[in-house]
Design a binder for these strands. Structure first.
Lengths: 219, 219
DNA sequence: CTATGGTGTTAGATTAATCTAACAAAATTG
DNA sequence: CAATTTTGTTAGATTAATCTAACACCATAG
């Protein structure tokens, strides 16, 4: 069984492996906020346990077993976040830190009960998919708001970043998942976008913000 | 901040200190299922942190600071147990193992929300008092069923032992907190007691069981 | 194609939590 | 009260996870 530390490395590897699948030691060291020698030795341990493929001076990659292990931890994390928001009344900006701890709990029934009580949700409060019990993750391909054009009507469906600061920024503008945004205009100079929704007839969103908003086109 | 290991030692010390307040190294070693040298060194660490009073070859005792720290961990444990039973539908025999892990989570809001959602309960699913936010523990003095006499009517209010096996034994007899027991007779030879309640007109309980059942006299 | 900076590794130390073996103090018991 | 048993301590080793310092590989920029 993976230690909490090992679980955290697996999770980071999973998240860094999104596209390219191969992760450099330095990237992982940076993500985990530890030194490269620490990562080097941990990667050897993960390899011994069959979770990663690793050869000296080569980038690291997760094995299918490692991917599954990581996905199941992420499942616990996201189920917890959803439970905290839906069943305990927390705001989406408050749940990450708590879920970061709860995800390490070994108690299958605990998470199964959460899942049941919520009616088996498939996405977390930030729009990220919840891996299933087999560790399979549903691929969703949303569009970034920065890729949309003036005139389009889109629905806010996810975020590429869920930092507390960003979530508080969105709260400050009453932006939450499901919001229908009408793209009023797009500034050629700085790629900022003006959107309207609910009681917000004209809210300007910078490119930096638009890149992080994942949307589904409505019309 | 106490490590999870330190928290577990504090909890054990608190539980062992119920009456006499002074705990021997060997008792603690036995409770924690580690060797005496391990306890010896850990006790020195706890002392450095101001949680215990300790002198070579003398028994250990908790300081007020140590007692508070321990009580607050026990508070998290018991709130969790109550939440699992009342809000998540677990049986009282299933919750200890989960609470044992959840109690180490550092997230005051998480436990405050549980508390709120349950309407600030004062006892856990096994009838043990939940310490308050200041770590104060309400003294309840129940009677052991083994001290009761034939003819008395009592209400099951607590347990001195909450092992899964014992809880399953009670489940098998439909005995749960709040049950009204009428003491039909008491056997002089082996101190077993015959009680009646609900659909159980005559259930014999051994001395070993009666000692572990805490009751309130009704009449 | 070599010099240099960045990336990765090795060696060795540190801290927390544990162990066993050996010894010391205290308590019990004949 | 002396002998033995129990309880407690010290010393030294181990494992996991981390660090820094020093060295090695490699990729790219002149």
């Amino acid at each position: 069984m993976a230690s909490q530390t090992e679980e955290n490395y697996l999770k980071s590897l999973f998240n860094l492996a999104n596209d390219k699948n191969e992760i450099n030691i330095s990237e992982l060291a940076n993500q985990m906020q530890v030194s490269m020698p620490t990562v080097n030795s941990m990667v050897k341990t993960l390899q011994k346990n069959g979770w990663v493929i690793y050869e000296k001076y080569k980038p690291v990659s997760l094995t299918p077993k490692g991917k599954k292990e990581a996905a199941l931890i992420i499942r616990k994390h996201r189920l917890t976040e959803m439970f905290l928001v839906n069943k305990m009344g927390f705001g989406w900006e408050e749940v990450h830190e708590i879920a970061e701890q709860v995800e390490h709990i070994h108690a299958p029934k605990f998470f199964e009960r959460m899942d049941e009580m919520m009616g088996f949700p498939t996405i977390d409060p930030h729009g990220s998919p919840i891996p299933d019990k087999q560790g399979r993750i549903q691929e969703i391909n949303y569009l970034s708001l920065s890729e949309c054009k003036a005139g389009q009507v889109v629905k806010l469906a996810g975020l590429t970043n869920s930092s507390t600061e960003f979530l508080e920024f969105l709260n400050g503008r009453n932006l939450s998942l499901g919001a229908e945004l009408t793209i009023r205009s797009k500034e050629v100079y700085d790629h900022s976008i003006v959107v309207s929704y609910l009681n917000h007839p004209g809210e300007t969103l910078s490119e930096k913000v638009c890149e992080k908003l994942l949307v589904k086109v409505v019309e």
